[in-house]
Design a binder for these strands. Sequence first.
RNA 1: GGCGCGGUAGCUCAAUUGGUUAGAGCCCCGGACUGUCGAUCCGGAGGUUGCGGGUUCGAGACCCGUCCGCGUCGCCA
Length: 588
Amino acid sequence: MLRSHTCGQLRSQDIGKSVTLCGWVENNRDHGGSVFIDLRDRYGLTQIVIGPPEAESSLIDAAGRVSSESVILVRGKVAPRLVGKVNEKLQTGEIEVRCEHMEVLNPCPTPPFTPSQPELPGEDLRLKYRFLDLRRPAMLQAMELRSKIIKIMRDYFAHHDFIDVETPILGRSTPEGARDYLVPSRVHGGKFYALPQSPQLYKQILMVAGFDRYVQVAKCFRDEDLRADRQPEFTQLDMEMSFVDQDDVIGMIDGLVQRTVKEVKGMELPLPLPRMTYQEAMSRFGTDAPDLRFAMEIVDISQIAAEVDFRVFRDAVDKGGFVRGLNVKGKASDFSRRRIDELTDYVKQNFAAKGLAWFRVEQDGALWSPTSKNFTDVELREIGQAMQAEPGDLVMFLADSWEVTCKGLAGLRKRLGAELNLYSEDAMSYSWVTQFPMFEFDAEENRWIAMHHPFTAPLAEDLEKLKSDPGSCRAQAYDLVINGSEAGGGTIRIHDGQTQQQVFELLGIDQQTARDRFGFLLDALKYGAPPHGGIALGIDRWVMLFAGLENIREVIAFPKTQKASDLMTEAPGEVDAKQLRELHLRAF
RNA sequence: GGCGCGGUAGCUCAAUUGGUUAGAGCCCCGGACUGUCGAUCCGGAGGUUGCGGGUUCGAGACCCGUCCGCGUCGCCA
């Protein structure tokens, strides 16, 4: 080891010791007679003093010229700081190292930015020079938290007898689901591997193999457009269990959430975590991932709306739609017409809503808005009552299809929750959403598609509806929701070939295609498949949420941009014509 | 693919209604200084305003196109 201690290690009890430290020059304060260098490494910051009597003037000169972010080695004695010169901000602030010898291990030219500069550089620069960005304490802390959370997960599952099994990265493309990243085969001209969207099929096979409890920290790949909380390449904690039902899997994860909250936040989380059905989540919050850090639930006033003269409301209900709204408690005075217009544009542009109806609740409790003349006093009173409106409230409504009211109100609720600070910054909420629909109807393709994946088992009581009424068939599927984010999702799987065949049929996957693509799974299900189910947790999102961050790139060492490129390595890049030829490919 | 925001010195930002030589702080360079810790003081350097075209007497600003970054909708079993 070049060093005897780290830069975060020395304390007053070390005074008098001869030490050798290595690190990066964070700052260099040259006073002519003596020089102060803040030496930084992963563990902290130690002040080095280069001055008489230990240091000769040539050393002092040299120290004054060392540039920021150079890597240096210093030898010297630990000394107490002068009276009144203790730096309370540093853990090593009671001491300093009086330098007797210094070596510049690697000088650094002026970097595009320094880790300690007060203004955060633009994200493109941070990504291009990620090695500088990762020196920032905030990035280091995020990566340390990530490491800690993964360790908690591994320990937890190891403790519960799970076997960690690695599954292939080069697999085969499956129909349905996200767009695959493809890898051309050199040996098999014109054929392709696909990178896994998840290890779904392999883990089911492991259950058939009798492994009983499987776990893996698995890299997954989906070639879809990015978001603040979505990367094309991400990491799941993937697990699967045999001879279990939904409650067993949820219970296992409940325990993990509790343990993580305890170790990361130091808080006791009471179990079980709250659960609600998909239907309930959509009614109350308009989304399958409700943020429970604040209330402001959706209220359905369709029954009242059906009777009013106001055509916007009545027509919506007549056409089979809904009138649903939110009560923004006590915030009417915060909302100018201009700000309400902004919200109106927001729901129109993003969720195809036709408009936003709103009322202020006056001091006498009456509802007022430019459109209130279209309502009778009785109707307004009924609406106010339904919304539990009190003076000072602002109530707003969407009159539209179920889907539009859900999406629009969920969007409004999310936006207003953040803008109005309806929850404290460190608040966390954890809950389960269960009983997702098995299928969604894809109007464009005019067919049913699996809401989760085609191996999801229906609720036992809905089994008979598979054929008769697929739209109302519910799945044994469950999502873990943290702060309004999907933090994990799983299902109990189909474990008999016959049901699997039925589901494939409904999805328009004919026997030939099913054999072709999933033959191995159908075989496996035939040769003694135990009932099984599991879940996958989004590790990146867990870390993001537990760190209180709003961007997934902040918890990934080398993330990709919105266009899925890596600004540091400049991937994706071009390849030689020879490589293409070997792969039987031509670039357009 | 749609909508929106942004791109000006190495970095973070400013630049009035389209109007003089595009400014500031930090960084950097030179000098001074025996205790700083966002050191201080003096002096200095530093610009293809992302790129291409257009409008105009005149464009950092306006128009068209394009590239890049971010947010969001679609998409994400």
